[in-house]
Design a protein around this nucleic acid. Structure first.
Lengths: 233, 233, 233, 233
DNA sequence: GATGAATGAGGATTCATTCAT
DNA sequence: CATGAATGAATCCTCATTCAT
């Protein structure tokens, strides 16, 4: 029941010398830029606003970022949290049920990424992908693809263990991805698709989605192998 | 004495080319604007581009819409309330199982809305909601809320008929909404969260999601037994 | 005491064939244009407004006037009322005192010109002279100069008759011109130099100015010739 | 240790060139704007012209004035209340005859206001009053009204001292105001009402007007005898 | 390094003018 | 003749970017 080793290693200290130089750049600027880009979009955000929110002058911003576009790219890079290597590694060592694993992963992901400021990147990508194809490709390579591959492995593990039925993996991944993306967007777009966004409790939302998805992923009644989940009880 | 039969036949088409064009203008402009706003965002779209795509000059656009912002609002209004009435009406007349109904609804919705140009509005709202709070509120009232109420009715129907188990409706609706929103966004944002967007077949996606969700919504076996994931951690 | 022959001849019928053709042009347009130009200035007046006020379409205006600038010139030409030839002619035949003549002239001028719509031309010239040098020169040649020459003759008549003292004519003319120009402007510029423009009664204003000017023009007490005005009483 | 006396002397002038320019900007812009607005009118003046005449770029103008309209208002405000206090103060301290006083006032006013750039404001008001009602009302309150009240006081002083006869003050003020307004306008509108504006010597003009007005304001000889022109016609 | 004044290319909007009907 | 839809040059204004201090 206690949170296992997953996500446990010191991710913050894994920065290269190059990364550290970036961090020496006023993180306030990147933080302010992320907030404003997420809130208003790239084009509608003025660099002066970013500078002001970071507490520096407009000129200073250009001392650290050669252009608004580079600032945008830096924001994306800075906030793309790619735990995937470590997660993958530790995933192999995980020893609980896949059901537990998925539940823990989603909640943990929410606490570390979804609820954080960095989750705005997803909304940002959604909005600006067409204007920044390179960045979009980068995001897809660094985030979407590894994320989906991880989910695939998790689902495959469940299938192999008999917890889940056989699935067309190319589509099944989205049953995990879609709810999480939706949760993030509901947070960053004034909940345009949510009747009362403030009333939506992320933890309850996750629990609800899990209860449906995981139950829905189980082997069908007529299948040869009975799902482990029922055997456990 | 007056020139007879010769021009008499198609009375309705007796409008001049001038007039016919005038009537077509707003629609052409709204179509072009929707495309560009969805593609590039509101701020990054130049009115001149919209006009050019509609085949008219900059000035002509302002003949029909007093400002870029009003054009945006008109785009949203134009595409917002298009298909809802039909879906609601069909729902009341539907006589099959709720499982069938949901499948029918999702596929029908995709054909009518999701695959159409109008689905761009959802992406637009996601991106620009913060810049157009009034429009966002309007969208929520006119689209999100009715849509969710429809889904609630469907789910309730399934619960009443014993097809589904008892659910916290405030969260269960999203198990339907999230996949559909995700599908739309994957179409309009270069599939930023989808590894290979062109390979994603909407109908297969819907089928996959349905197979999981609908199975996951069923009553729990034994009635009293509940999966661990719903238990408090 | 009854108004003499002055201004009596049928001025209206003295139009040439060319003038008549101009008059055939919608006088409504010229009337509307004068009003709007005077009210808002040339640049701030839109041709569409002029057309609308004249009850025609924008295109029709250009049927009669090749450009906005030509419309302006036509407005000025149309409203420059040059009675000067006749006035000069009849002036020679006038047989009353010069004091009577000036008083009658100013009141008559007010009734015929100052109070009419045409007086707006003076304000228009004041405002737009720098933007329309040719028109300004035209106005000066056709209106200012003849007007001043007439006033000079009148003043000279008064000097010759002993009613007025000897004057530097180059400056004395303005004692007549200035009050009249001021009266017109107070009417057309929201009385910017008048505390309560509505309370200013033109006839009382003229009487007041006359009482001061005419009295002030008399020969000085020590002069050899005593003024006729006192001899008459 | 710190570099001593060398740059110590002119402490106030220790402002950088940058800062000194910044402080000068608004004044330079207002000067250029006044000139151009007076010359061409508000609408016909382009902000770029104003900026160019002030020796800066378009963008710089908007650094100091949020809009062309606010620039206009600032121009008026800047030039409106400049000289009135002085004139009022001097008036209270004056000890000669009222005749002398009026002569002194008019000449002094001409030197301080009429001949200065600020006199353009009067022409500007005349031309643009209808387009800027608030400004016009402000001008009337701050300039016209105080100016007329001052003239009333002077005239009343002359009546009380027996230098002038009894007058209807509401109209008599204009015998002073009209010539001065006319003089200003002759300067700023290419002397549209003046045959040869360059030949008009302001001081001679003032002397001429004074000689007529002041003589005309004197008590009537015999006290009971009044000129015919005041009698009802 | 930091600042903020200055710049000017870019984009929204207006409106005189044209022209097909 | 009259209309009014269409045009695009002209103009206000914004804001990313530069650079002297």
């Amino acid at each position: 029941m206690s949170p296992p080793k997953l996500f446990c290693c010191p991710v913050q200290t894994a920065v290269t010398r190059h990364e550290r130089r970036k961090e020496a750049r006023p993180g306030e600027l990147l933080k302010a830029a992320l907030e404003l880009f997420v809130e208003k979009g790239f084009a509608a955000t003025r660099v002066e606003e970013v500078a002001a929110r970071a507490g520096v002058s407009k000129g200073t911003l250009f001392l650290y970022f050669p252009s608004k576009e580079e600032l945008f790219k830096a924001v994306v890079r800075e906030n793309i949290t790619t735990h995937f290597k470590e997660v993958n590694a530790e995933f192999d060592a995980f020893e609980g049920t896949t059901l537990d694993m998925i539940g823990f992963c989603m909640n943990s992901w929410w606490d570390r990424v979804g609820a954080s400021r960095a989750s705005g990147i997803t909304k940002l990508m959604m909005s600006e992908a067409n204007n920044f194809p390179e960045i979009a490709a980068f995001y897809q390579q660094e985030v979407s693809l590894p994320g989906q591959q991880l989910i695939r492995r998790v689902l495959q593990r469940g299938i192999d263990s008999g917890e889940f039925r056989s699935l067309d993996m190319d589509y099944a991944v989205y049953s995990i991805v879609a709810p999480m993306v939706f949760l993030i967007l509901s947070r960053h777009s004034l909940g345009i698709c949510v009747s009362n966004p403030d009333a939506l409790d992320p933890k309850k939302y996750i629990a609800s989605q899990l209860s449906i998805i995981l139950y829905g992923l189980r082997p069908l009644p007529g299948d040869a192998v009975r799902p482990a989940i029922e055997a456990d009880r």
